[in-house]
């Protein structure tokens, strides 16, 4: 949605001006002192773009390519001992390193479980708030604040004490006579606590859903009301199709973010990904391999596979949208 929206708008804004008026200049009769309007615009454009261009080449594109090159080496911090080892890092990753597949499992479980739940929460609450409810502003704020704080270390610290052996949750369960355990300390439930933390931040997709719901034309509901459609039918046949592009947008954002989760799991597991590797996120393993063991080549290979996974996941969500996303202006 970002993509297409931005590009079409860029394309439609005066697409021909610069080409047309730049023509005489190319024929070899450039007025030496007085630039044409188009030339001036182009010069100004690149002048304004200079910081971004420096950043794009210097700290985005070149590092990206460098990490691709590094992924085919055994680089470990010293350029003296570095060797080209072809696909060895990738072979190690896929066939030898058991921690690698563990991290893939953990990360996919996290994304596939917590992202849909988070989106369902976000949409449910947004739908309720969209019924012209009193105190909308207050609810919006309360539900949104966790999204703002969710990636902070302070909340991760708090999480450790909510889900610990003598944590808040167990104390509450105790009131009901249930004896809890250390949710964070047990391999079966440690990942669950991190997923709950992700669901806890449903406020930001909720805000986007709310904006989308407000765009649904009221005539559609009126027409459906005349046709005798019930509340449930209206939701499934009007609301959901109308905001399906927003669902797609939120889904992509959440998937991309989910694959990159790091801070919470680092703090909750004390940087280990434990217990028993149950919270060994992809990004955490990458961090350990790179900055703990100085296996920069191997970690670069992991980073490139992550890039491909995120690219493929985004493409898959987009492609699936063909079957369920409905654009109102489609002919």
């Amino acid at each position: 949605m970002i993509d297409t929206h931005g590009q079409t708008a860029a394309a439609s804004a005066r697409p021909t001006t610069s080409d047309a008026s730049a023509d005489p200049a190319r024929r070899g009769r450039p007025p030496r002192t007085a630039w044409t309007e188009a030339q001036r615009t182009t010069a100004a454009g690149y002048a304004f773009l200079t910081p971004w261009l420096l950043g794009f080449f210097g700290i985005t594109l070149l590092p990206m390519l460098a990490s691709l090159v590094l992924s085919f080496t055994n680089f470990s911090g010293s350029f003296r001992t570095v060797e080209w080892i072809g696909f060895e890092n990738y072979r190690l990753m896929f066939t030898v390193d058991p921690a690698y597949w563990q991290s893939v499992r953990v990360t996919f479980t996290y994304v596939l479980v917590s992202v849909p739940i988070m989106l369902v929460f976000a949409l449910t609450v947004a739908t309720l708030l969209n019924k012209g409810i009193a105190m909308l502003g207050l609810y919006r704020t309360i539900f949104y604040v966790p999204s703002l704080l969710g990636s902070s270390v302070a909340i991760a610290v708090l999480w450790r004490f909510i889900w610990g052996e003598t944590g808040l949750l167990n104390n509450v369960l105790d009131l009901f006579g249930i004896v809890g355990r250390s949710w964070i300390g047990h391999p079966d439930t440690a990942l669950l606590t991190i997923m709950v933390l992700n669901v806890w931040t449903f406020g930001s997709p909720m805000i986007i859903f709310l904006a989308g719901l407000r765009q649904v034309p009221a005539e559609l509901y009126e027409a459906a009301g005349l046709d005798g459609a019930g509340r449930r039918q209206r939701f499934w046949h009007i609301t959901l199709p109308s905001i399906s592009p927003v669902v797609l947008f939120n889904g992509i954002l959440a998937v991309i973010g989910g694959f990159q989760a790091f801070t919470q799991v680092y703090v909750v597991s004390g940087g280990t990904g434990g217990p028993a590797g149950s919270t060994l996120f992809y990004t955490l393993l990458l961090y350990q391999r790179a900055f703990g063991e100085l296996r920069f080549g191997y970690a670069s290979a992991m980073a490139w596979v992550l890039l491909l996974i995120i690219g493929a996941a985004t493409a898959a969500v987009f492609a699936s949208g063909r079957y369920w996303v409905y654009y109102g202006d489609e002919r």
Binding site: P15, S18, F56, S300, L307
Partner: peptide, 26 residues
């Protein structure tokens, strides 16, 4: 509306999606 704007704009949008991890080590 400078020459090449669409091209650079596309690249800029592309970097939004880029996971920081591919840039981190270099």
């Amino acid at each position: 509306p400078f020459r090449g704007r669409k091209f650079w704009f596309g690249l800029m949008i592309g970097t939004i999606m880029l996971p920081i991890h591919v840039l981190l080590i270099p």
